[in-house]
Amino acid sequence: MERDPHQLIEGMAVGAYAIGSTEMYIFCRGEFAYAARQLERAAAEAYEAGILGKNIMGSGYDLDLIIHRGAGAYICGEETALLEAIEGRRGQPRLRPPFPATHGLFSKPTVVNNVETFACVPHIITNGADWFKGFGTEKSPGTKMFCLSGDVERPGNYEVPFGTPARDLIEGFAGGVKGGKKLKAFTPGGASSTQFFGPDKLDTNMDWESVMAAGSLLGTGAIIVFAEDVCMVRAALRYTRFYAHESCGKCTPCREGTYWMVNTLERFENGQGREEDIAIMNDVAGNIIGRSFCALGDFSIAPVTSTTKLFADEYRQHIAKGGCPFDR
């Protein structure tokens, strides 16, 4: 969106033509003002050059693009909440079915895809399907932009074929754990990884099927790295606070459950954690998953379920010490 906006517009235009749609929308999160400005400038250039608008490139086909700026809600990444927001309502997920493919934006059949997916399209059209399938694995063809962040020497985005081992990304491209420290954990797929990975999962190939077989999800490909001196209880608290803040409030289990998980995690950090709280949090988590409209609720439990499973000893250290045992 920021550095190659025309690639996105072109990929979307091919997609729109393929399904016979004359309208395209890019929903850009409100915080990403620079991305929205770059897209608006690119769209203006494309209209000026006859690539968008009436009779695009002399083909007789009409195609319009609307850049829609959101107001900063994480939930609007959920496709039906996104459609609601474009239609001018509060960003909350819709009941499915019907799915957007039959009843989407303004009740019209709609294709909703991530910008990275659309950005691949011009390359597939130009070079052919077999060329694209030459990257990655059979079930995860192509490349993926992995975002390395947290305790690494060289944080950033790295585009590699699907199936590249996590070790190459963390120790190779990102230069390893910052300051020569040991790795404690990493997320294979951002905040919405269903399971954090420990150092034993460093040799997991980063494709959809391998990450799933290892017990988590590739999600956004955001690899967040935690060094040995990070408090995983505090990390769980930070994540869960985020989900509690971003829960749209439509479903009671997600709205109330995230709130109570935050409350309980705060007890551990404040020195009031009890052994039974570990089970209580997991009970709350079990009442959120599968009982909410959308994936935000399902994913919101991962920091709690994952850290209580992998780092139960850290919770117990909080109980024994009467607070957080980590200095950092």
Partner: peptide, 16 residues
């Protein structure tokens, strides 16, 4: 063109 992209799915990335 729909056939071409269908033959080689840029696998839909999740938005979450």
């Amino acid at each position: 063109s729909a056939t071409q992209t269908k033959a080689s799915p840029a696998r839909s990335k999740t938005a979450s």
